[in-house]
Every structure is written in structure tokens, then in C-alpha cells.
Design a protein around this nucleic acid. Structure first.
Lengths: 151, 151
DNA sequence: CGTTGACCTAACGTTTACGTCAACTCCTTG
DNA sequence: CAAGGAGTTGACGTAAACGTTAGGTCAACG
């Protein structure tokens, strides 16, 4: 717990919510080891208080994005690239252009994925109704029917 | 090439399209090694002609589904489970129920993913317009502005 | 003041999904 | 008939993303 430290640091005004690695780990149901690993890979850079990692609200938000990216099947390298889009320097025009291009590429990729998910959903739903039909047929009486693989 | 064999096998009527491992590999831009690996994991079961693997249309369709599943970030084990849904025995009621449950679970998961993709897309588009704005500001004149991390 | 509980680093182990040889068997072609 | 080219089966190597000890620090608690 870093609660006491939070008060000490802010003088008791607004706690500005600080988190230990354990806090975040249990909140998001991941291991501390995993969080440290994300840091090794450059996805997180928490402050330190005497060796111990201390996470602020922004770090927590980044972790959330990391985990969402993971659920979507992105690699940590990919996720890092996406996160880095948010910390672009608005004064460096060339960087801005590069970020814009990368961002748009990500958007296009996500669009493709969404389309593939929609297609998969359609197929699974079709299969679902087919299976439901088979169950019905098997429940009343006891007929037979064959089922092929994917067309 | 198995073209000649195709004719021999069907008597020259309808070739019924057969594929060698190399055919599928180049068509889908994956290595033969990968295709063999999918077979090892039980996701494909091509026929053999003298040791050589021969794929029919259904095998090709399965491979397509495998690769789509991969692009969506599913593990081969997950993909296998999904594929197995298509080869359920319509005579075994219990299996039907199990398949139905699994299928519905997959559907629910894909729905969640779709929602997360939509959310991510929204954020990236917001970022995009922000970056576009920064670029504009930097192009005419040369002002300054700051950009924070993810909220 | 000893011991728990939460944190730390360092280092090796594990699973997934292949890549990469090596060595062999078949055609087919010059 | 020699030489490719495409296929085969091992077997070992590898990158990613952690899990799992091992060993050590430090503050709080009875």
C-alpha cells in the first residue's frame, strides 16, 4: 500500500491516487511479473519510491490499454507502437506525419479485423441455428440427418 | 502438382480440384512447414497419395478459417475447437448441446472483441483528428501546443 | 525483536508457433 | 542417367510472453 505516502506527498489535499504494483495486479487480474515485464519492454515507466514502483492515473490508463490490446491479440511491440502515438511531440512536424501514417495504418487494420469478426460471427450464428435445429429434430422422434464441414 | 492425378482419379469428368501442400502454401502465403504443423495439431487431415499430402476443397476452406482465426489472434487450440464445431455428430444429442454451448460462448467472446475494436477505433480516430490539427497548426505559422497521454 | 507481507532483482523454465537444417524418396527432364 | 524440384520425416533452434524459483530489502505488527 502507498496510501500513506500519497497523503505525505500531497500534504493531505487531493490524494491524486497512487497505486502499487500489487494494486494494479489485483485490480486487473494480472501478475505483478507481467506488469514488470511490460515495463521491461518499454510500455510502462512508473516512478520509483525507494526502489518500489509507484503508478499514477496515467500509468493505470496505459495498463488498461495494454490489456485491451492483448485481448485483441496484438503483440506487445504493436501495443507499444500504439501507445507511443499518444506521446508524440506536437512541435516536430516530421514525427507528426509519421504518427499520423502509423495511426491510419492501425485504423485500417482494425477495420479489417472488425470485418473478419463480423464474418465469423455470421458463420457461427448460422451454425448455431443449424445445431438448434438438429437438437429439435433429435428431441421429438428420432430422425437422422448429415452435416458437412465448412463450405 | 497433382493436376494429372486429379484427372486420373475422376476419370476426366470434373477435376474436383486437388491441391498439393505447395499449392496451398503459395496461395495463402504461408510455409508448408506451418501447414504441416496445423496438421500435427489436429486442425487438418488431408488424404495421402503415396506419402504425399493431397488437399481437397474442404481442406482448403479449413485452412482459410485457420488463417483468419490466426489474424484474429486466436490460438491454434481455440481455432481447433471452433473448427470442430462444424463436424459435430447430429445423432448424439449430448454432443449437440455441448457444441451449442461452446459456439455460443465463442459468439459472446467475438461480440466483446468487436466492441473493444470499435472503442479502440473511436479513440484512434479522435487521436487522428488531433494530430491532423497539430500538423495544420505547425504548417501555417509556427505556434505551440502540448499533448497529454491517454486519459 | 523475530516474523510476516509486499516489494525488489536475477536467472532459469515453459508454452506456442513455427523456422531451419539434414537426410531421404520420388518423378521429370535434358 | 545425372540433376533438379517437390515432397517426406525427424530433430534442433528461436522469439514472445510470461511463470517460477531463489535470494534479499524494508516497514509494520504482536
Amino acid at each position: 500500500m502507498v496510501e500513506a505516502l500519497a497523503f505525505a506527498a500531497t500534504g493531505g489535499e487531493r490524494p491524486a491516487r497512487l497505486y502499487s504494483i500489487g494494486d494494479l495486479a489485483s485490480e486487473f487480474a494480472v501478475s505483478p511479473r507481467a506488469i514488470r515485464f511490460y515495463e521491461d519492454q518499454g510500455l510502462l515507466k512508473p516512478q520509483r519510491i525507494g526502489g518500489n514502483r509507484v503508478y499514477v492515473h496515467g500509468d493505470r490508463a496505459r495498463l488498461k490499454l495494454i490489456l485491451r490490446g492483448k485481448r485483441l491479440g496484438f503483440s506487445l511491440a504493436d501495443i507499444k507502437e500504439m501507445l507511443d502515438l499518444y506521446s508524440v511531440d506536437p512541435d516536430h512536424l516530421e514525427q507528426l506525419r509519421v504518427s499520423l501514417a502509423k495511426g491510419r495504418a492501425r485504423i485500417a487494420e482494425l477495420e479489417r479485423r472488425r470485418a473478419e469478426i463480423v464474418a465469423t460471427l455470421a458463420e457461427l450464428r448460422e451454425l448455431e441455428t443449424a445445431v438448434v435445429g438438429m437438437i429439435r429434430e433429435r428431441e421429438r422422434g428420432s430422425r437422422k440427418r448429415k452435416q458437412g464441414g465448412p463450405s
